[in-house]
Simulated scan of single mutants.
Amino acid sequence: MRKNIPILALLIVLLGIALYQNYGNEVRSFLGAGSDKKTLGAALAEGAPKPGSPSPAFALQGLDGNTYKVGGERDKPVLVNFWASWCDPCKDEAPDLVKLYEKYGDRLDIYGVNVTAYDTVEKAEAFVKEYGIEFPVLLDKKEEAYKKFNGVAFPTNVLIDKDGVIQDLIVGILPPKDLEAKIKKLLQSS
């Protein structure tokens, strides 16, 4: 096995050189080298709807059989949470969303959107049961809603005001107090 280590190291170096030669400009651009500097977050968020713009509209069926709509004017602001059952940060965030729904559910809709294109209905149902989720859980079986928000990571949270305007788009998990502060700000502005 020790005889193979130099050969493996050489292969890795050669592979790195080949990738750099073929994709060097793209890698340098993505990592921020050269004149076109981008942060990883900016690169991920390219093409996503921006705060201050109207939310893309979608309608999805929930686990309860009802159809839920996002986009345009509504009675309450909404937090749209895109997730998958296998996502560890989603598991970490689920209890916080349950608490936020208990605290603000009379003034804020929370829709958990399981991106079922990357999951299964059965696993989504088990997740909902395990975490005691009572807010509506929608099934994005064809990834249509997630794509409208240029989804790139789980969880992704979108805060939308009563006028259907995106107020915040959060890729990844926030500490519970930070997410709650954003919700309070959303409720104060609505």
Rank of each mutant, 00 (worst) to 15 (best):
K99W: 12
S55N: 09
G16W: 08
P54N: 11
V121H: 13
N81G: 05
V137P: 06
P54G: 09
V158R: 02
G52M: 13
K162C: 03
V158K: 05
V27M: 09
I17F: 11
A94K: 03
L44D: 07
D75M: 11
F149D: 05
E73Q: 14
G132C: 04
N4T: 14
L179C: 01
D109E: 12
L40C: 02
Y146A: 14
E125K: 13
Y118V: 03
V78W: 03
K184A: 09
P176C: 08
A33I: 11
L100Q: 00
P89H: 05
V113N: 00
L63I: 13
V13Q: 10
F149Y: 15
V121E: 15
A94S: 08
K103A: 07
K69R: 15
L97D: 07
F149L: 04
L44R: 13
I183K: 02
L15I: 05
P95R: 02
V78E: 02
I133N: 01
N150W: 09
V78N: 06
S35G: 14
N157F: 03
V13K: 06
C87G: 06
R2A: 13
K37A: 15
S190M: 07
R2P: 05
K69W: 10
G62L: 08
F127I: 03
N66G: 04
P95H: 01
L108W: 01
V121L: 13
A18M: 05
S29E: 15
I110F: 04
V13T: 03
E134W: 06
N22Y: 10
K185D: 14
E122D: 15
K38Q: 15
E125R: 12
F135P: 00
G32W: 02
I166H: 07
S190P: 05
N150S: 14
I133G: 03
K147M: 06
Q21S: 12
P95M: 03
K162R: 11
G32D: 02
K99L: 13
E26N: 13
E93Y: 04
L174N: 02
G47C: 00
K182P: 03
L40Y: 11
D119T: 05
A48N: 08
E134S: 12
Y118A: 08
L174W: 02
L169V: 15
V98Q: 00
N157C: 14
P77L: 00
G112W: 03
L11Y: 13
G112F: 12
D92S: 11
N25S: 15
P155M: 00
D106Q: 06
I160N: 01
I7S: 09
I110A: 01
D140P: 07
G52E: 08
L44M: 14
G41K: 10
E180H: 08
K76I: 04
L31G: 09
K147R: 15
I7G: 08
P155W: 01
G16I: 03
Q188E: 14
K129G: 09
A45W: 08
I173N: 06
M1G: 15
Y131S: 10
S29V: 13
F30M: 12
A84E: 01
R107T: 09
G34P: 12
P51I: 05
P89W: 04
L186S: 03
